[in-house]
């Protein structure tokens, strides 16, 4: 079983990294031929960085759009961020002080994460408009994340696993030295789902994470009268 999970994580990590890199390269290489920021937009690069920060850190546009979705999305994403920080301890030795510091917060963030996911999923059933636009994969994605959250919380609060052994396993993986993984069904489900999430990441709507940084309506500076904005393919038209 340990070997199986080791292979699974190597494959998942490879797909995640290569797939995501390929997507990011394709986003970056595709030209944006026209200046299309949604205005009012910042007129300086610093302003654009700030706008992007507000978008990524506070979901500013979503806040303007729908408070319910914002609340659930914020609970899920901020919860997830803290949980990820908390999980860093499985990959580093000695544990950095701020990861140590975040441990108790990360624990409760797991509940926020699960609650946020529950809220987002409930909307897919309860709100007619969102039911209409939901695809099977939208539901499965939430199910996957919720399974990860619930099994994680289960191991923390109900049926513990040997987390020292888990850490040994992952530190071993990073040195290509496969160590035994504790036998624990909850842990198996948790890790299998995480690996699956990594595998589908580059092929799914999870691409919203890198995508937001490349969105021309958000990342462009509002200066078209001061600077000429010409893509490579558009410049060729002027040669004729």
């Amino acid at each position: 079983m340990s070997l199986l999970f080791a292979i699974l994580f190597y494959v998942a990590a490879a797909i995640f990294v290569v797939g995501l890199a390929a997507k990011i390269i394709s986003f970056a290489r595709t030209p944006a031929p026209l200046s299309i920021p949604t205005t009012p937009a910042p007129t300086t690069t610093g302003g654009v960085v700030l706008r992007m920060f507000r978008e990524v850190a506070f979901f500013e546009s979503l806040f303007k759009g729908n408070l319910w979705i914002w609340m659930f999305a914020a609970a899920f994403h901020f919860g997830l961020a803290l949980v990820l920080v908390r999980h860093l301890r499985y990959f580093i030795e000695p544990v950095w002080f701020w990861v140590d510091f975040a441990q108790p917060f990360g624990m409760y963030a797991g509940f926020a994460m699960a609650a946020g996911l529950g809220g987002l999923w409930a909307r897919r059933f309860l709100v007619e408009r969102i039911r209409y636009i939901s695809t099977t994969s939208d539901h499965l994605m939430l199910a996957l994340l919720l399974i990860i959250a619930v099994t994680g919380l289960g191991m923390k609060f109900i049926v513990h696993t040997d987390i020292v052994a888990v850490k040994t396993f992952f530190l071993g993986l990073m040195r290509f030295d496969i160590q035994p993984l504790p036998e624990h069904p909850g842990l198996y489900i948790h890790l299998a789902c995480v690996a699956l999430l990594m595998i589908i990441f580059p092929f799914s709507k999870l691409l919203h994470a890198p995508g937001v940084f490349f969105s021309p309506s958000r990342n462009q500076t509002d200066n078209p009268r001061e600077a000429r904005h010409l893509s490579s393919w558009a410049a060729k038209l002027e040669k004729n």
């Binding site: 979503l62 919203h208 969105s215």
Partner: peptide, 24 residues
């Protein structure tokens, strides 16, 4: 068009069906 317009390429991939736009 997907090769010429970053907007189209990113917008095709990035939507999560959150529903914020549905009533706008």
């Amino acid at each position: 068009l997907l090769d010429k317009y970053r907007s189209l390429r990113v917008y095709m991939d990035a939507c999560v069906h959150c529903g914020s736009c549905t009533d706008k």
